[in-house]
């Protein structure tokens, strides 16, 4: 089984000059696509990656990063809802694969549960008033 996930990596200053990503790719057989990078010597580095590969390689790669001292954040917590734009129409609820966007049966309002969101981003363009936003 393969996985493809988007993660935010925070590198403490001591790791910025080490070839961490080289080892992530070479030793763990993962494919990566850099979505955003901000690296300045002696300061915290930030890297947003799409990582894909076999499930067990992915898990090992994440373990390697954690053990090396990289702080990993899932992108999940970074899809947010612009409350002022959401009209609570409900177009998103059939699109969201995890139930993070779900209708309250009494009020008919759409509830957003960020803890269930996997940042697949399917809702972002499917939302007619474009209330779902990706924040890095």
């Amino acid at each position: 089984m393969t996985v493809a996930k988007r993660v935010v990596l925070h590198f403490p200053p001591r790791l910025v000059e080490k070839p961490i990503i080289y080892h992530l790719v070479k030793d763990h057989n993962l494919v990566l696509n850099i979505l955003k990078a901000s690296v300045t010597p002696k300061e915290e580095g930030l890297l947003v990656l799409e990582l894909s590969g076999a499930r067990k390689d992915y898990d090992k790669g994440i373990r390697y990063l954690t053990e090396a001292g990289v702080r990993i954040q899932s992108l999940g917590q970074d899809v947010i809802r612009n409350e002022a734009r959401c009209t609570h129409c409900g177009a998103c609820v059939a699109i969201c694969p995890t139930g993070a966007l779900a209708l309250d049966p009494t009020t008919r309002r759409v509830n957003f549960y960020p803890d269930k969101c996997t940042a697949c981003e399917l809702c972002v363009l499917a939302c007619p008033p474009r209330a779902m936003e990706v924040h890095f």
Binding site: T87, H88, C89, G90, A91, C92, A94, T107, R109
Partner: peptide
């Protein structure tokens, strides 16, 4: 799913 907002 609805495209028309009932709460609105």
């Amino acid at each position: 799913a609805s495209l028309s907002s009932y709460p609105k």
